[in-house]
């Protein structure tokens, strides 16, 4: 049986990269004695997959991973047990039962929302204006360098919601494996008319939610409709 686990990541641990974060959870799951299923073979590993890697420097209030379990004995304590093995800044927010036929977390990801504040005076000065300009523009082209050359893309088609709120940029954009919009790419496209691209450290990025599309094509969270078991 499979379950989906939600967690948040705030504070200094934002400097822990995705792979290290995964290793951290592998150890924690083992220490918490969650009955996780191991792969067959000579070097068995936990059957664990993360929905959407979080970049170094980013914080998040909604991260997810899928876990295959061998049993649900004592399931109601899993969340508390796993939380006891966390470190400062990482908190597990619930275990959700996943139907056997459900696609894995990573394949489900369709969009993600973010909140970004800036350590850059110009950005703070022009944010409101830049967002309005983005909303009213018919197209906003972002250029991305890839192995096969520069790929142009109209961000208007990939950004589903965008607003300025209390000095922060809040947006929801495509996060599917084929069309993911990097928060920094959107920011730099937004401010392109005003000033040079910013450094990553000038943006304080918090991921707010990760979404999938339901049968009606609507964006819903990765745990939408799932039964919370812990």
């Amino acid at each position: 049986m499979k379950c989906r686990v939600k967690f948040s990541k705030f504070g200094p641990v934002k400097f822990i990269g995705h792979l290290d974060c995964m290793r951290f959870f592998q150890k924690a799951i083992k220490a918490a004695e969650i009955p996780v299923k191991y792969s067959e073979g000579f070097s068995p590993h936990q059957i664990l997959s993360f929905a959407f890697p979080l970049g170094v420097g980013m914080q998040s209030q909604a991260e997810y991973f899928d876990l295959e379990l061998v049993s649900l004995d004592g399931a109601k304590d899993y969340n508390a047990n796993l939380n006891r093995e966390m470190c400062e800044g990482v908190e597990t927010l619930g275990f959700y039962l996943l139907p056997d036929k459900a696609p894995n977390a990573m394949a489900s990801v369709a969009a993600a929302s973010y909140r970004i504040t800036f350590r850059n005076d110009k950005a703070n000065q022009y944010l409101k204006e830049a967002v309005e300009k983005f909303i009213s523009a018919s197209e906003v082209i972002s250029e991305k360098e890839t192995k096969t050359g520069i790929v142009k893309r109209n961000l208007k088609e990939a950004v589903y919601e965008i607003a300025e709120r209390d000095g922060a940029l809040i947006f929801t954009a495509d996060a599917s494996s084929a069309g993911n919009v990097k928060p920094s790419a959107l920011v730099n496209a937004l401010f392109a008319p005003y000033f040079e691209p910013m450094q990553l450290w000038e943006m304080e990025i918090v991921r707010l939610e990760i979404f999938q599309r339901n049968a009606d094509g609507k964006l819903v969270t990765l745990i939408d409709g799932l039964e919370r078991i812990s």
């Binding site: 504070g11 200094p12 641990v13 400097f15 822990i16 990269g17 290290d20 951290f24 150890k27 924690a28 170094v56 093995e85 966390m86 470190c87 400062e88 800044g89």
Partner: peptide, 9 residues
């Protein structure tokens, strides 16, 4: 950077 932040379990 994780070398310098402490806070390990």
């Amino acid at each position: 950077p994780a070398r310098y932040i402490g806070g390990e379990k």
